[in-house]
Design a protein around this nucleic acid. Sequence first.
RNA 1: GCCCGCGUGGCGGAACUGGCAGACGCGCAGGACUUAAAAUCCUGUGGUGGCGACAUCGUACCGGUUCGAUUCCGGUCGCGGGCACCA
Length: 803
Amino acid sequence: MATPYNHRAIEQKWRKKWEENPINVNDGTKEKYYCLDMFPYPSGNGLHVGHWRGYVISDVWSRYKLMHGYYVIHPMGWDAFGLPAENYAIKMGTHPAKTTAENIKNIKRQIQEIASIYDWDMEVNTTDPGFYKWTQWIFVQMFKKGLAYEKEMPINWCPSCKTGLANEEVVNGKCERCGADVTKKNLKQWMLKITAYADRLLADLDKLDWPEKVKKMQTDWIGKSYGAEVDFKVDGKEDVITVYTTRPDTLYGATFMVLAPEHAMAKDLATDDTRAAVEDYIYKASLKSSVDRLQDKEKTGVFTGSYAINPLNGAKVPIWLSDYVLADYGTGAIMCVPAHDDRDFEFAKKFDLPIIQVISKDGKEIENMTEAYTDAAGTMINSGEWNGMESAVLKLEAPAIIEKKGFGKKTTNYKLRDWVFSRQRYWGEPIPIVHCPDCGNVPLPEEQLPLLLPDVDSYQPTGTGESPLADITDWVNTTCPVCGKPAKRETNTMPQWAGSSWYFLRYVDNKNDKELVSREKADKYLPVDMYIGGVEHAVLHLLYSRFYTKFLCDIGVIDFDEPFTKLFNQGMVTGKNGIKMSKSMGNVVSPDDLVRDYGCDSLRMYELFVGPPELDSEWDDRGIDGVYRFITRFWNMVMDNTDKNVEETKELVKIRHKLVYDITSRLESFSLNTVVSGFMEYNNKLIDMSKKGGVDKATLETFVQLLAPFAPHISEELWEELGHKESVFHCGWPAYDEKAIEDDEIEIAVQLNGKTRATVTLAKDVAKEDAIARGKEALGDKLQGNVIREIYVPGKIINIVAK
RNA sequence: GCCCGCGUGGCGGAACUGGCAGACGCGCAGGACUUAAAAUCCUGUGGUGGCGACAUCGUACCGGUUCGAUUCCGGUCGCGGGCACCA
């Protein structure tokens, strides 16, 4: 009797061997392949089976590349600054530095259970001063280039987290982190000018091998639109109000104008009669939170008492104020064409303003308009010299016409806003700026970096808009690096995204204390070839990283401007009924027990078997039995045949080549769940062959090689059992022969009027007439009436149409 | 409201460029082994009708294109995601 499968003994044995003799080494001759996981933040809850899945996917891919002879860069690190870590520490009543270190230790142990080929020499930790020195250094470089600037403005404020937030962190008016309603707060903030890169961030999406969904989300987030700015003179004054419109073709239909209440000219437009009402409206609008403004869809507004002149036809149009116009988009003022814009239509109806149609629908004006006609499809009417033109054509030509006439210009706009970069929290990188009364904002010189985060007892957020660091007077009070006079440090910290925006560059040179990364290593090992992680970072981390990479490319630190060549988003693993795994729901499945009971190899394969890797899956423990059975049956099958010296047969050779073909093509297309089912299918076939006479050694070896990236321990063990001294990971990836997988005979279906009624086995290159004849023969009595059509698609189908 | 994606047995899912729908696995039922249980092995498993080979319906729903549609097109319903007064 052969040795029974014992996962514990085998996995322990190979873990030790790999530690002594690493299988993924850089000998300087191999081509690199950089396969990266989105690094985790060290949460106190540890890993659940959902985290595991992403790491298994990346490890399978890494080992697959390793077997193709690459030197695989597959590192892991810790995104340890930021709110989750700090909130956890506050809850536990412990210093975040301490809880973070403990959590890392636990999660690292759990990650090591996966048996990924992580190179722990490359490990990075964003809270390590040797790391955040460079996070601060990048900020200083951005400051020097004018891309980091300070500005006082109303920003998104989370009253629960007690900090400002970036636009990207506000989801449906709520805090991305804690779900509390976000309000507005006027704060002096550090901003990063990501908008300077808007065009490149948009255009370069084309060169990325990313899921279309993510590209689209970024495209929409950047939100580029094309249109024109048009100057309207204020009637009776010298003032000019510029509006932005994407529909300059409808200029003749502009019957009023609306300014955001925050518009610089809003107050000046009031007349003696309207002043009180205007000032009241402006005041009330300033009190509205972003949530109110988002939810109050009912239009409000006030007439200023002033009029503007439509530059095209000289028409006098009333100027209103309304908070449906955003102050920080376009020019903060719009021309209103109620006939062809939903919002303007609603406003015009409410305040009884005139509506002029300038685009005909189906050749005529709409009678008794009940909603705006917003399509740019129709012929221009009521539009002077533009009458008769197609609106779709005019829409494109109008900006140039306006520019030529001298009352406006062609322009573009973006929804993307600059990045609010200050956080009023303790657990983050201090912003390396000194406020000097004489010199203004002065960045710390490089030799003073890192600016260490001071160790304090009280790190609770204050809620006042000031960072807890502001209380540490002997840290705050410093001298100006330029003039040496007393000055104060900036007390805000950076957001969690600061470290994660560039960490992938650091892995390959993580001990360098002279540079962020040496140019030599960057050129050799970067960028990332394959990036694997959840889709939740589509417009956060993934957008910020692209921005940072472009900036670092511009200042010559690196020579590429896109960080992640290929991106794969794995689906989320949820509990029953698609409920997200969380401690509060009590539905968290820990991998620890499963590894103990079934082994790492089984859990790895089951993580993949639950469903397509890109889709969400509901976790069900019971299914792992099926994978465990497969592994045991495979083990027994190989053991039964190892010493039999079975001669290879034509049938076995064909199975072998088909196996290689099926597994490789499924793996290449990332259909990892069907790779696992493929293994099961072929294993069943080989068990069958085993009963009939046995399985040859070459087939066993091939199977073991293919299985290795998925179940590395058992594969190494069986590879050794089959007589090999070298690791299976150094023995290449099996190839298949096209000719060997071709069938001489094929079984195809015979249809009668499109419904399958029989099957026939035909020679591969059978002539059409013969195939049809065989098909008719197989149908026999069922074939009745006149045959009106005969279809034969080689290798696919025979269909006889009879009446 | 606008823009994407999805809808297949009791369950997870498979079906490459239109070609035998339900691979593989879970669960369930029956059987073998066992004093018994577990483990293992074998058989069956979309619905309806029939002892049966077979017939018939069936990929959310309605319609279309086609010799042939889970796959392509139009519409309806349901679910999930993104954006949310961006002019």
